[in-house]
Amino acid sequence: MQPLAGQDLLHTQPHSMHWLATATAISAVIAVSSLIQPPDATATAVATTRSARSAPAPDPGRVTFPVDCGPNRLDVTRKVSGDLDGTGGTETVAVVRCHSDTGTPPSGVYVLAQPSDPKAAPRIVATLLAPAQRLTVQDLDIQGREISTTLLGYSTLDVPRCCPDVHKSLKWQWRGGKFVQSELPAGATTEGA
């Protein structure tokens, strides 16, 4: 039996060197193609991540708080910001109270989040302390995802308004889709609590 045309040529017989050269060429093509992508192939994902992280903290000055101050204005006395729920966004904790030239009106503590539309006003997502509780915020801090504060108040109406006799240290943490409050032991400070 005679070989078919071309079967007797040595260069048409597969050798290990041919397979090695072919595998190297295919590997090179795959490597180069993974490096060359359309300009916007990953830009969207990177831009979205960066914009979520670099979005400014919600501005309490753009929020209508549920506090009735009558003829007086509402003052934002403290604000701190951080990623409180671990989603990568930034929330703001704002302490507000009615303006007064004398005395210290009770405080309200609210958590604000920015809607997906950056032009929209921030919204209140949680009320940590309502002014009706008649407590005043002395300090406010965020450590990681924990909010801590020291509150001052009065045990009875007979206590002079100059000298609060109730001192509480509270903290809130995001757990199970809500802020969970706990009271710190007496004498504990809110710094690093």
Rank of each mutant, 00 (worst) to 15 (best):
D75L: 14
G86Q: 10
L112F: 01
T90E: 06
L4G: 11
H99P: 00
V159T: 15
D85C: 03
T12D: 02
A113T: 12
G86L: 07
R175T: 12
S116A: 15
D139H: 07
G153H: 03
T48L: 13
P56E: 09
P71F: 05
L152I: 03
A41S: 11
T42S: 12
Q13K: 14
P38M: 09
T102L: 12
V111S: 06
L170P: 01
L151P: 02
T102F: 14
Q181P: 03
T64W: 00
E191R: 14
T92P: 00
H15D: 10
R78H: 14
A57Q: 08
T87G: 10
T90K: 15
S116W: 00
R50Y: 12
A47F: 04
P160K: 02
R73Q: 14
V125N: 06
D59T: 06
E146Q: 15
R175M: 10
A57G: 02
A113S: 15
G6Y: 07
A28D: 02
G61F: 04
A43P: 00
H99F: 15
R123Y: 01
V109F: 03
R134E: 13
G61Y: 05
S155I: 05
V180Y: 03
P105M: 08
D165M: 05
A132M: 00
W174Y: 15
T87E: 11
L20E: 09
I147D: 03
A186S: 13
N72S: 15
S116V: 09
R145M: 13
P66Q: 07
C163W: 08
G153E: 06
V32F: 09
V76N: 08
T189C: 00
T77Q: 06
T149H: 00
Q13H: 12
D75H: 11
P122L: 08
I36P: 00
G108L: 03
T150V: 13
L170I: 04
P131D: 03
S33M: 11
G103V: 07
V180C: 04
T49Q: 13
A31V: 10
A5I: 11
G88H: 02
W172Y: 14
N72M: 13
Q138I: 01
P185R: 06
C162L: 09
E191A: 14
S81F: 08
R78I: 01
P3W: 10
A41R: 09
T49P: 00
A5L: 13
D8S: 14
R62V: 05
Q2W: 11
K119Q: 13
A94C: 07
T190M: 01
D8G: 14
H11S: 07
V159N: 02
P115E: 02
S81Q: 10
A55P: 02
P14H: 00
V159S: 07
S182F: 03
Q181E: 15
Q173M: 13
E91Y: 04
Y110S: 00
A43Q: 13
W174R: 10
Q2D: 15
Q173H: 12
C163R: 09
P39I: 05
V80M: 09
W172P: 06
D117K: 02
S33V: 04
A186F: 07
P122D: 05
G6I: 04
D75V: 12
R73E: 14
